[in-house]
Amino acid sequence: MKAEAWMFVACTVFLVLVTPTYWFVTAGSEHGGDWTGTSALVMCTLLLAMISAYLGFHARQMDDRPEDRKDGEIADGAGELGFFPPFSWWPLWAALCLTTITFSLAMAAWWLAIIGGVVGAIALCGWIFEYYRGEFSH
């Protein structure tokens, strides 16, 4: 994770340098600076700094991965990487229910939001429990 942490640190440093430059370049405009762009750059800088701190903290806590060592070989990273879920329809139904709820709230159709919430709860339960029964149970 050390390489990833350094990539985010480099991006953070870049934005730390670019944000005040952007503010001073836009300060000559008739509105006295672009608040929207500057605040977006500040928030991106803080987000990247947070991710950099998180990755840097965890990189110190972990043992060296083969990717982080200079003498690491491809074979050192061999083995099981984890569980990757197979194809599933449940995320589609959950997303469609969330879309229905959002649309119904925008259109003030509360009855449709209730229907979307009930069907969404069923879709969420199906998504959570899909590995407890059927072909991919474990």
Score class of each variant (00 low, 15 high):
Ala121Ile: 13
Leu48Gly: 11
Tyr132Asn: 13
Leu124Tyr: 09
Phe14Arg: 14
Leu17Ile: 15
Cys97Asp: 07
His58Ile: 05
Glu73Leu: 15
Arg69Tyr: 11
Val18Ser: 10
Ala10Glu: 15
Ala40Asn: 11
Ser39Pro: 01
Ile74Thr: 09
Asp68His: 06
Tyr132Gly: 12
Phe103Gly: 10
Leu41Phe: 10
Ile51Leu: 10
Pro85Met: 03
Ala94Trp: 05
Trp35Ile: 12
Asp63Pro: 07
Leu105Thr: 06
Phe83Ser: 12
Leu81Trp: 12
Pro86Met: 08
Thr21Pro: 02
Trp89Pro: 15
Tyr54Pro: 00
Leu124Asp: 01
Gly120Lys: 01
Phe8Ala: 09
Ile115Lys: 04
Phe24Pro: 00
Cys125Pro: 02
Ala53Trp: 07
Gly77Arg: 04
Pro66Cys: 07
Pro86Gln: 05
Val25Met: 14
Trp6His: 04
Ser29Asp: 15
Trp35Arg: 13
Ala49Met: 03
Thr19Gln: 03
Thr102Phe: 09
Ser104Ile: 01
Cys125Trp: 07
Leu96Val: 05
Cys44Ser: 08
Trp90Lys: 02
Ile114Phe: 14
Tyr54Leu: 12
Thr21Asp: 07
Glu80Gln: 07
Thr36Gln: 13
Gly82Pro: 02
Ser29Glu: 06
Trp35Phe: 04
Tyr22Met: 09
Leu55Asn: 00
Ala106Arg: 10
Glu73Lys: 15
Ala75Leu: 11
Phe84Tyr: 08
Gly77Ala: 12
Phe103Asn: 08
Ala109Asn: 13
Phe24Asn: 05
Asp64Glu: 12
Arg60Trp: 07
Ala27Thr: 00
Ile122His: 07
Ala106Cys: 15
Ile101His: 01
Tyr132Gln: 14
Leu46Met: 11
Met107Glu: 14
Gly72Asp: 04
Ser52Asp: 03
Leu96Tyr: 04
Cys97Gly: 06
Thr36Met: 10
Gly77His: 01
Ala109Gly: 06
Gly28Gln: 11
Trp93Lys: 11
Val9Pro: 01
Thr21His: 10
Pro66Met: 05
Gly28Thr: 03
Ala53His: 04
Gly126Phe: 04
Tyr54Met: 12
Arg133Ser: 15
Thr26Lys: 03
Phe24Glu: 09
His58Tyr: 12
Ala113Met: 06
Tyr131Asn: 10
Ile122Cys: 09
Thr19Pro: 00
Glu130Gly: 00
Ser104Arg: 01
Arg69Pro: 06
Gly117Leu: 09
Thr100Ala: 12
Met7Ile: 15
Thr19Cys: 04
Thr19Ile: 02
Gly116Glu: 00
Val119Cys: 03
Trp35Thr: 03
Met62Pro: 00
Thr12Pro: 01
Trp6Tyr: 08
Pro91Ser: 03
His31Met: 14
Thr38Asn: 05
Thr102His: 05
Phe14Met: 09
Ala78Asn: 14
Leu47Gln: 02
Trp89Asp: 05
Ala109His: 11
Ile74Gly: 03
Ala53Val: 12
Trp111Asp: 13
Thr102Trp: 05
Ile51Ala: 11
Leu15Tyr: 09
Trp111Tyr: 11
Val119Thr: 09
